[in-house]
Design a protein around this nucleic acid. Structure first.
Lengths: 139, 139
DNA sequence: CATCATCCGTAGCCATTGCTACATTTGTTT
DNA sequence: AAACAAATGTAGCAATGGCTACGGATGATG
């Protein structure tokens, strides 16, 4: 009774780093949206956006600044680096596709918005392609 | 220029607790699978399954024991409580539906397996229903 | 029944993401 | 210019999930 347990291919291997990059994507995406919506993005805007305290935001902003995705100087609005903007653009596109896909599948807009936030981080390129194909076939 | 930033409806509000329940679901699901596959589930089986150290597993098992999802006594195999089995069953069903759905959508099995692991935690009841509907319509 | 490999627990470290409480900076408003 | 409100920063705590290193428990094997 000593069967080897088959290890998970990939998904569970790096939960920590995956969560970290999730955060990075969520934040650059939010920064881009907030700048588009109101011209600038402050720490408190992000805090309200994510429903967390400004302390949590400023710590994460600092980390993403170190990772050269954001530009932040004390008491000034947050901006995106080129790399950050590129990541944000990709994340937003993927997000939009997942959202449109769920709606096309028949999910109401409110639930599609909620679920797409979480799902977008786990949609690989093959799945994304399949979603795009489905969207095209529906037109 | 003082627009209120619209807060996210729900999704981002409790990242921490969401990640915690993700872990709970992953673990009870794994425990159920391992017991089905090889009769019992040891800490090291879970460690190999998730590609983490046995230390990480035993800490999480302890927490899930406190939450009354698992039963564990020192140096003994891990079992499920009724509540844990119920949660595992629901998680497995949802997982299976998401997996079948992705495959029906045209994603290859390997990628469908990877993506479904992450996606399953963010599929609300409305989205799940839509996936089931799609699967039925494909038969 | 002694030994040894395997399994598991504990100690203690780090990173991430929450928080409250308090300090500081900025900018507006007398 | 002073005073005040709002925005940020800093200190320090907790929970979660990673890890290595070490030691104790279990069970198989000689």
């Amino acid at each position: 009774m000593k069967d080897k347990v088959k290890a998970r291919s990939v998904p569970f291997s790096q939960t920590r780093s995956r969560h970290a990059s999730e955060t990075a994507e969520d934040y650059v995406e939010a920064v881009m949206e907030l700048i588009e919506e109101k011209g600038e993005c402050r720490v408190l805007d992000l805090a309200r956006y994510f429903n967390v305290s400004h302390v949590t935001v400023s710590r994460i902003v600092k980390r993403l600044h170190d990772e050269k995705l954001l530009i932040s100087s004390p008491y000034k609005p947050v901006r995106l680096t080129d790399a950050g903007a590129k990541l944000a653009k990709r994340a937003k596109e993927r997000h939009a596709i997942v959202l449109d896909f769920l709606i096309a599948l028949g999910v109401d807009k409110a639930n599609a918005e909620i679920d797409s936030e979480g799902i977008e981080h786990y949609v690989g390129s093959k799945t994304l392609t399949a979603m795009k194909r489905f969207l095209k076939s529906q037109k």
